[in-house]
Design a binder for these strands. Structure first.
Ligand SMILES: [Mn+2]
Ligand SMILES: [Mn+2]
Ligand SMILES: [Zn+2]
Ligand SMILES: [Zn+2]
Lengths: 143, 143
DNA sequence: TTTGTATTGAAAATGAATATCAAAAGCATA
DNA sequence: TATGCTTTTGATATTCATTTTCAATACAAA
Protein backbone atom coordinates (compact mmCIF):
# COMPACT_ATOMS: atom_id res chain seq x y z
CA UNK A 1 0.00 0.00 0.00
CA UNK A 2 2.69 2.47 1.00
CA UNK A 3 4.92 1.02 -1.67
CA UNK A 4 2.22 1.49 -4.29
CA UNK A 5 1.84 5.09 -3.30
CA UNK A 6 5.54 5.67 -3.57
CA UNK A 7 5.53 4.12 -7.01
CA UNK A 8 2.58 6.25 -8.00
CA UNK A 9 4.37 9.39 -6.92
CA UNK A 10 7.52 8.33 -8.71
CA UNK A 11 5.67 7.86 -11.98
CA UNK A 12 4.03 11.23 -11.52
CA UNK A 13 7.44 12.77 -10.91
CA UNK A 14 8.94 10.99 -13.89
CA UNK A 15 6.17 12.17 -16.18
CA UNK A 16 6.60 15.68 -14.99
CA UNK A 17 10.33 15.50 -15.53
CA UNK A 18 11.01 16.02 -11.83
CA UNK A 19 14.26 14.78 -10.40
CA UNK A 20 14.29 12.28 -7.61
CA UNK A 21 15.76 13.76 -4.49
CA UNK A 22 16.64 12.61 -1.02
CA UNK A 23 14.36 15.28 0.47
CA UNK A 24 11.29 14.24 -1.46
CA UNK A 25 11.86 10.62 -0.53
CA UNK A 26 12.14 11.46 3.13
CA UNK A 27 9.13 13.73 3.13
CA UNK A 28 7.06 11.15 1.31
CA UNK A 29 8.06 8.41 3.76
CA UNK A 30 7.20 10.48 6.75
CA UNK A 31 3.99 11.82 5.28
CA UNK A 32 2.86 8.29 4.50
CA UNK A 33 3.64 7.25 8.05
CA UNK A 34 1.30 9.86 9.49
CA UNK A 35 -2.43 9.71 9.87
CA UNK A 36 -5.19 12.21 9.43
CA UNK A 37 -5.12 15.88 8.56
CA UNK A 38 -1.63 16.88 9.52
CA UNK A 39 -0.63 20.51 9.30
CA UNK A 40 2.46 21.56 7.36
CA UNK A 41 4.11 22.76 10.52
CA UNK A 42 3.39 19.50 12.35
CA UNK A 43 4.84 17.52 9.51
CA UNK A 44 7.82 19.85 9.26
CA UNK A 45 8.64 19.32 12.92
CA UNK A 46 8.28 15.56 12.57
CA UNK A 47 10.62 15.62 9.61
CA UNK A 48 13.13 17.86 11.28
CA UNK A 49 13.47 15.58 14.27
CA UNK A 50 15.05 12.90 12.12
CA UNK A 51 16.34 15.13 9.31
CA UNK A 52 17.38 18.49 10.70
CA UNK A 53 18.67 19.72 7.39
CA UNK A 54 15.38 19.82 5.56
CA UNK A 55 13.96 23.29 5.15
CA UNK A 56 10.56 24.78 5.63
CA UNK A 57 10.16 25.78 2.03
CA UNK A 58 10.92 22.30 0.80
CA UNK A 59 8.20 20.80 2.93
CA UNK A 60 5.69 23.32 1.63
CA UNK A 61 6.78 22.76 -1.95
CA UNK A 62 6.76 19.01 -1.65
CA UNK A 63 3.32 18.78 -0.09
CA UNK A 64 1.97 20.84 -2.97
CA UNK A 65 3.48 18.27 -5.31
CA UNK A 66 1.88 15.43 -3.40
CA UNK A 67 -1.48 17.11 -3.75
CA UNK A 68 -0.91 17.70 -7.42
CA UNK A 69 0.00 14.05 -7.89
CA UNK A 70 -3.23 12.99 -6.25
CA UNK A 71 -1.47 11.40 -3.31
CA UNK A 72 -2.56 14.00 -0.81
CA UNK A 73 -5.48 16.31 -0.37
CA UNK A 74 -5.23 19.82 0.98
CA UNK A 75 -7.65 20.66 3.76
CA UNK A 76 -8.61 24.04 5.12
CA UNK A 77 -10.38 23.99 8.41
CA UNK A 78 -10.57 27.25 10.21
CA UNK A 79 -7.45 27.53 12.27
CA UNK A 80 -5.54 29.32 9.54
CA UNK A 81 -3.29 26.38 8.74
CA UNK A 82 -3.25 24.21 5.68
CA UNK A 83 -3.51 20.54 6.44
CA UNK A 84 -2.94 17.49 4.28
CA UNK A 85 -4.50 14.09 4.37
CA UNK A 86 -3.83 10.94 2.37
CA UNK A 87 -5.94 10.67 -0.72
CA UNK A 88 -6.60 7.58 -2.72
CA UNK A 89 -7.70 7.36 -6.29
CA UNK A 90 -11.42 7.92 -6.58
CA UNK A 91 -12.01 8.12 -2.87
CA UNK A 92 -13.77 11.11 -1.38
CA UNK A 93 -15.10 11.98 2.02
CA UNK A 94 -16.25 14.97 3.99
CA UNK A 95 -15.67 16.06 7.57
CA UNK A 96 -17.52 16.43 10.80
CA UNK A 97 -15.38 18.70 12.97
CA UNK A 98 -15.70 19.07 16.73
CA UNK A 99 -14.93 22.65 17.69
CA UNK A 100 -14.44 21.54 21.28
CA UNK A 101 -11.64 19.01 20.94
CA UNK A 102 -10.71 19.23 17.25
CA UNK A 103 -11.71 15.66 16.61
CA UNK A 104 -12.49 15.05 12.98
CA UNK A 105 -14.85 12.35 11.82
CA UNK A 106 -14.87 11.42 8.17
CA UNK A 107 -17.99 10.42 6.34
CA UNK A 108 -19.29 9.69 2.89
CA UNK A 109 -22.82 10.11 1.68
CA UNK A 110 -23.55 9.16 -1.87
CA UNK A 111 -27.02 10.71 -1.75
CA UNK A 112 -25.53 14.08 -0.92
CA UNK A 113 -22.92 13.71 -3.64
CA UNK A 114 -25.63 12.92 -6.15
CA UNK A 115 -27.66 15.94 -5.09
CA UNK A 116 -24.56 18.09 -5.48
CA UNK A 117 -24.09 16.87 -9.01
CA UNK A 118 -27.72 17.64 -9.77
CA UNK A 119 -27.44 21.15 -8.37
CA UNK A 120 -24.30 21.80 -10.38
CA UNK A 121 -25.75 20.54 -13.61
CA UNK A 122 -28.92 22.52 -13.05
CA UNK A 123 -26.71 25.63 -13.04
CA UNK A 124 -24.57 24.54 -15.95
CA UNK A 125 -21.53 23.92 -13.78
CA UNK A 126 -18.93 21.28 -14.32
CA UNK A 127 -17.81 20.23 -10.84
CA UNK A 128 -14.13 20.07 -10.21
CA UNK A 129 -14.23 19.39 -6.50
CA UNK A 130 -16.19 20.28 -3.45
CA UNK A 131 -15.89 20.50 0.26
CA UNK A 132 -18.37 20.09 3.00
CA UNK A 133 -17.65 20.49 6.66
CA UNK A 134 -20.06 20.21 9.50
CA UNK A 135 -18.91 21.99 12.64
CA UNK A 136 -20.32 21.19 16.02
CA UNK A 137 -19.70 19.47 19.32
CA UNK A 138 -19.02 15.78 19.68
CA UNK A 139 -20.80 13.80 22.37
CA UNK A 140 -17.81 14.06 24.74
CA UNK A 141 -17.60 17.81 24.41
CA UNK A 142 -21.26 18.31 25.10
CA UNK A 143 -21.11 16.71 28.54
CA UNK B 1 -35.26 46.30 4.83
CA UNK B 2 -32.05 48.24 5.18
CA UNK B 3 -33.65 50.26 7.92
CA UNK B 4 -34.73 47.14 9.76
CA UNK B 5 -31.20 45.81 9.61
CA UNK B 6 -29.85 49.04 10.98
CA UNK B 7 -32.33 48.88 13.81
CA UNK B 8 -31.43 45.30 14.47
CA UNK B 9 -27.77 46.17 14.71
CA UNK B 10 -28.51 49.11 16.94
CA UNK B 11 -30.43 46.95 19.38
CA UNK B 12 -27.61 44.45 19.35
CA UNK B 13 -25.15 47.24 20.05
CA UNK B 14 -27.33 48.67 22.79
CA UNK B 15 -27.68 45.32 24.49
CA UNK B 16 -23.97 44.82 24.36
CA UNK B 17 -23.36 48.26 25.78
CA UNK B 18 -21.54 49.41 22.65
CA UNK B 19 -21.37 53.09 21.87
CA UNK B 20 -22.82 54.40 18.69
CA UNK B 21 -20.12 55.86 16.50
CA UNK B 22 -19.90 57.66 13.21
CA UNK B 23 -17.56 54.96 11.88
CA UNK B 24 -19.89 52.08 12.61
CA UNK B 25 -22.76 53.93 11.01
CA UNK B 26 -20.79 54.58 7.87
CA UNK B 27 -19.46 51.05 7.63
CA UNK B 28 -22.91 49.62 8.15
CA UNK B 29 -24.41 51.86 5.47
CA UNK B 30 -21.78 50.95 2.96
CA UNK B 31 -21.83 47.27 3.80
CA UNK B 32 -25.60 47.20 3.37
CA UNK B 33 -25.27 48.91 0.02
CA UNK B 34 -23.00 46.17 -1.31
CA UNK B 35 -23.98 42.83 -2.68
CA UNK B 36 -22.49 39.39 -2.41
CA UNK B 37 -19.39 38.14 -0.69
CA UNK B 38 -17.28 41.24 -0.39
CA UNK B 39 -13.77 40.95 0.97
CA UNK B 40 -12.64 43.11 3.86
CA UNK B 41 -10.13 44.84 1.64
CA UNK B 42 -12.73 45.55 -1.05
CA UNK B 43 -15.07 47.01 1.51
CA UNK B 44 -12.26 48.99 3.10
CA UNK B 45 -11.40 50.60 -0.24
CA UNK B 46 -15.03 51.38 -0.95
CA UNK B 47 -15.33 53.01 2.45
CA UNK B 48 -12.13 54.96 2.12
CA UNK B 49 -13.19 56.52 -1.15
CA UNK B 50 -15.93 58.45 0.61
CA UNK B 51 -14.45 58.42 4.11
CA UNK B 52 -10.69 58.59 3.91
CA UNK B 53 -10.25 58.81 7.65
CA UNK B 54 -11.52 55.37 8.52
CA UNK B 55 -8.84 52.87 9.38
CA UNK B 56 -8.19 49.33 8.40
CA UNK B 57 -8.50 47.97 11.88
CA UNK B 58 -11.89 49.57 12.39
CA UNK B 59 -13.27 47.88 9.30
CA UNK B 60 -12.03 44.50 10.48
CA UNK B 61 -13.38 45.07 13.97
CA UNK B 62 -16.72 46.29 12.77
CA UNK B 63 -17.31 43.44 10.36
CA UNK B 64 -16.66 41.03 13.19
CA UNK B 65 -19.35 42.81 15.14
CA UNK B 66 -21.77 42.57 12.24
CA UNK B 67 -21.18 38.84 12.07
CA UNK B 68 -21.66 38.54 15.81
CA UNK B 69 -24.91 40.44 15.58
CA UNK B 70 -26.20 38.06 12.94
CA UNK B 71 -26.28 40.73 10.26
CA UNK B 72 -23.40 39.35 8.28
CA UNK B 73 -21.88 35.98 7.63
CA UNK B 74 -18.18 35.34 7.28
CA UNK B 75 -17.16 33.34 4.22
CA UNK B 76 -13.88 31.63 3.50
CA UNK B 77 -13.34 30.63 -0.07
CA UNK B 78 -9.85 29.74 -1.10
CA UNK B 79 -8.17 32.95 -2.00
CA UNK B 80 -6.98 33.51 1.55
CA UNK B 81 -9.27 36.45 2.19
CA UNK B 82 -12.20 36.63 4.53
CA UNK B 83 -15.39 37.72 2.86
CA UNK B 84 -18.70 38.83 4.29
CA UNK B 85 -22.19 38.48 2.96
CA UNK B 86 -25.53 39.74 4.22
CA UNK B 87 -27.25 37.27 6.47
CA UNK B 88 -30.88 37.20 7.39
CA UNK B 89 -32.45 35.55 10.35
CA UNK B 90 -32.89 31.86 9.76
CA UNK B 91 -31.71 31.96 6.18
CA UNK B 92 -28.96 29.67 5.01
CA UNK B 93 -27.45 28.82 1.66
CA UNK B 94 -24.39 27.23 0.18
CA UNK B 95 -22.17 28.16 -2.72
CA UNK B 96 -21.30 27.05 -6.20
CA UNK B 97 -18.02 28.76 -7.08
CA UNK B 98 -16.64 29.15 -10.59
CA UNK B 99 -12.86 28.91 -10.44
CA UNK B 100 -12.65 30.50 -13.86
CA UNK B 101 -14.40 33.82 -13.30
CA UNK B 102 -15.08 33.79 -9.54
CA UNK B 103 -18.81 33.90 -10.06
CA UNK B 104 -20.66 32.58 -7.05
CA UNK B 105 -24.08 31.03 -7.27
CA UNK B 106 -26.05 30.51 -4.11
CA UNK B 107 -28.28 27.55 -3.54
CA UNK B 108 -30.31 25.86 -0.87
CA UNK B 109 -31.17 22.21 -0.70
CA UNK B 110 -33.29 21.08 2.16
CA UNK B 111 -32.68 17.40 1.39
CA UNK B 112 -28.95 17.87 1.80
CA UNK B 113 -29.45 19.81 5.01
CA UNK B 114 -31.59 17.02 6.36
CA UNK B 115 -29.01 14.41 5.44
CA UNK B 116 -26.37 16.48 7.19
CA UNK B 117 -28.44 16.52 10.36
CA UNK B 118 -28.86 12.77 10.13
CA UNK B 119 -25.14 12.21 9.69
CA UNK B 120 -24.35 14.45 12.62
CA UNK B 121 -26.84 12.82 14.92
CA UNK B 122 -25.64 9.36 13.89
CA UNK B 123 -22.22 10.41 15.21
CA UNK B 124 -23.55 12.05 18.33
CA UNK B 125 -22.69 15.53 17.07
CA UNK B 126 -24.62 18.66 17.78
CA UNK B 127 -24.29 20.82 14.66
CA UNK B 128 -23.34 24.40 15.16
CA UNK B 129 -22.90 25.35 11.52
CA UNK B 130 -21.68 23.93 8.30
CA UNK B 131 -20.28 24.94 4.99
CA UNK B 132 -20.48 23.39 1.62
CA UNK B 133 -18.84 24.71 -1.47
CA UNK B 134 -18.85 23.21 -4.91
CA UNK B 135 -15.98 24.37 -7.09
CA UNK B 136 -16.04 24.07 -10.83
CA UNK B 137 -16.50 25.91 -14.09
CA UNK B 138 -19.61 27.78 -15.06
CA UNK B 139 -21.06 27.40 -18.52
CA UNK B 140 -19.37 30.57 -19.77
CA UNK B 141 -15.97 29.48 -18.57
CA UNK B 142 -16.22 26.09 -20.19
CA UNK B 143 -16.60 27.50 -23.68
C1' DT C 1 33.86 13.43 -15.51
C1' DT C 2 31.66 17.37 -17.46
C1' DT C 3 27.80 20.17 -18.00
C1' DG C 4 23.26 22.05 -17.91
C1' DT C 5 19.31 22.33 -15.16
C1' DA C 6 16.38 21.33 -11.16
C1' DT C 7 16.30 21.56 -6.34
C1' DT C 8 17.33 23.08 -1.95
C1' DG C 9 17.51 25.99 2.30
C1' DA C 10 18.47 30.32 4.61
C1' DA C 11 16.79 34.46 4.67
C1' DA C 12 13.87 38.06 3.17
C1' DA C 13 9.38 39.29 1.55
C1' DT C 14 4.48 39.10 1.40
C1' DG C 15 -0.15 39.58 2.88
C1' DA C 16 -3.98 39.03 5.88
C1' DA C 17 -5.27 39.78 10.34
C1' DT C 18 -4.47 41.25 15.14
C1' DA C 19 -2.38 43.83 18.97
C1' DT C 20 -0.78 48.13 21.00
C1' DC C 21 -1.55 52.44 22.75
C1' DA C 22 -2.09 57.42 22.83
C1' DA C 23 -5.48 60.53 21.24
C1' DA C 24 -10.28 61.32 20.29
C1' DA C 25 -15.09 60.59 20.91
C1' DG C 26 -19.31 59.13 23.37
C1' DC C 27 -22.10 59.39 27.26
C1' DA C 28 -23.69 59.74 32.02
C1' DT C 29 -23.79 62.91 35.44
C1' DA C 30 -23.32 67.18 37.79
C1' DT D 1 -22.80 73.06 29.32
C1' DA D 2 -18.72 71.25 31.58
C1' DT D 3 -16.59 67.18 33.87
C1' DG D 4 -14.83 62.75 34.12
C1' DC D 5 -14.82 58.06 33.02
C1' DT D 6 -14.73 54.61 29.43
C1' DT D 7 -14.94 53.03 24.82
C1' DT D 8 -13.41 53.53 20.31
C1' DT D 9 -10.41 54.77 16.85
C1' DG D 10 -6.42 54.69 13.66
C1' DA D 11 -1.46 54.78 12.90
C1' DT D 12 1.77 51.68 13.53
C1' DA D 13 3.99 47.59 14.87
C1' DT D 14 3.51 42.74 15.21
C1' DT D 15 2.23 38.10 14.23
C1' DC D 16 1.97 34.09 11.61
C1' DA D 17 1.49 31.19 7.58
C1' DT D 18 3.16 30.95 3.27
C1' DT D 19 5.92 32.37 -0.80
C1' DT D 20 9.83 34.27 -3.09
C1' DT D 21 14.64 34.95 -3.89
C1' DC D 22 18.93 33.41 -5.04
C1' DA D 23 23.43 31.36 -4.42
C1' DA D 24 25.04 26.88 -3.43
C1' DT D 25 24.26 22.09 -4.22
C1' DA D 26 22.59 17.83 -6.19
C1' DC D 27 20.89 15.17 -10.06
C1' DA D 28 21.21 12.91 -14.39
C1' DA D 29 22.33 12.84 -19.24
C1' DA D 30 26.04 12.57 -22.25
MN1 LIG E 1 -10.33 13.46 6.01
MN1 LIG F 1 -23.69 33.59 -0.33
ZN1 LIG G 1 -15.17 17.15 20.83
ZN1 LIG H 1 -17.03 31.17 -14.67
Amino acid sequence: MILEKKKAFNSFAAEKGLRSTRQRDIILDIFLSTHQHISVEELYLKIKSSNPGIGHATVYRTLKLFAESGLAREIHLHDGQTRYEHAMEGEHHDHLVCTGCDTIIEFEDETIEKLQREIASRHGFKINNHKMEIYGLCSDCRK
